[in-house]
């Protein structure tokens, strides 16, 4: 094994540049891997002579994956864990965070408050769920991010149109209908960063649009992560398996609820309002894992 740490990327976001700069500043022993250039042996073939000797080893002891492609991240972490690497975040965490159904199951099992959600597999059964919830309801893709393809269905007519589109035009994941109650939030939601056992910091994101997401614009201010915001965020991070995570929460009439947990969270807009060196905190966690040989 040639290096302690591999930093895996695809397209570089501002976040990855900040993390790479911090690794350089620390003089860390790391290699950068582009998942578009990777090929990973998963089975050597039946002939004994085909079996690698010694067995295939991962490119580094610790794999820090910041690829923005969920599928690539999941399989890279799965394969390299099988080869013996310690992965940040672990494949089980990536799998849970990257799939909204699995996230909902994990949160519910851990008793973490989230929004009322039902999954259906046909447009007809999804429409029945929407009728039972009452309009408006929200339809989300089970895989995807940045608020893409999230639809507010204000009426039966709108629901019929969107559900038919998804059934005809979508991939099989688009035909897993994730129907969620609509919340009249007070124009903002929270993003809280949980790194290992620490609730590091958080922001409030404000937007006039019903979808609040910094990828879609909106203003940002510091969120106090003491008290319930921090407690629920920590519980949500634990529920999905822990690591370097960004927990999104919304205020509802019944209290705070977790919307999603991100395994490759974007933080470019969170450093200035919180005053927290997030790249430094994340690099601390990963270099600590390299030292300990454990998360």
């Amino acid at each position: 094994m040639s290096t302690r740490l591999a930093f895996v990327t695809s397209r570089l976001r501002v976040e990855e540049k900040l993390l790479l700069a911090e690794l350089e500043r620390r003089g860390a022993d790391y290699a950068r891997l582009d998942d578009g250039e990777m090929s990973l042996l998963v089975a050597a073939g039946a002939h004994p002579a085909d079996r690698p000797n010694p067995p295939t080893t991962p490119p580094a002891d610790v794999i820090w994956n910041r690829s923005l492609a969920f599928g690539r991240t999941l399989y890279t972490q799965r394969i390299l864990e099988a080869q013996g690497a310690l992965c940040v975040n672990p494949s089980s965490v990536v799998e849970t965070c990257g799939d909204k159904v699995l996230t909902s199951i994990a949160l519910e099992r851990a008793g973490v408050p989230s929004l009322r959600t039902t999954v259906a597999f046909t447009p007809e059964s999804a429409l029945q769920v929407a009728e039972e919830f009452g309009y408006p309801v929200v339809l989300k893709p089970v895989v995807g991010s940045w608020g893409r393809l999230v639809a507010r269905l204000d009426s039966r007519t709108a629901a019929e149109a969107v559900l038919e589109d998804r059934a005809v035009l979508g991939s099989w994941q688009q035909q897993v209908f994730y129907v969620q109650e609509y919340i009249e939030k007070p124009g903002r939601d929270a993003r809280v960063f949980v790194i290992g056992d620490e609730v590091t910091c958080g922001i409030w994101r404000a937007s006039e649009h019903w979808i609040t997401n910094t990828a879609r614009g909106g203003s940002v201010e510091r969120c106090d992560v003491g008290g319930e915001v921090g407690e629920i965020s920590f519980a949500a991070a634990r529920a999905v398996g822990g690591g370097i995570l960004a927990v999104d929460l919304v205020e509802t009439p019944n209290g705070l609820a977790v919307i999603e947990v991100n395994h490759s969270g974007e933080f470019r807009n969170s450093i200035e309002p919180t005053g927290v060196d997030l790249p430094g905190a994340m690099v601390d966690y990963v270099l600590g894992a390299c030292e300990r040989g454990a998360l």
């Binding site: 397209r11 923005l68 492609a69 895989v143 994941q173």
Partner: peptide
């Protein structure tokens, strides 16, 4: 040319 955004891209 940068690749188009894929369905599974994100955070």
């Amino acid at each position: 040319l940068a690749p188009e955004i894929q369905e599974d891209w994100g955070e």
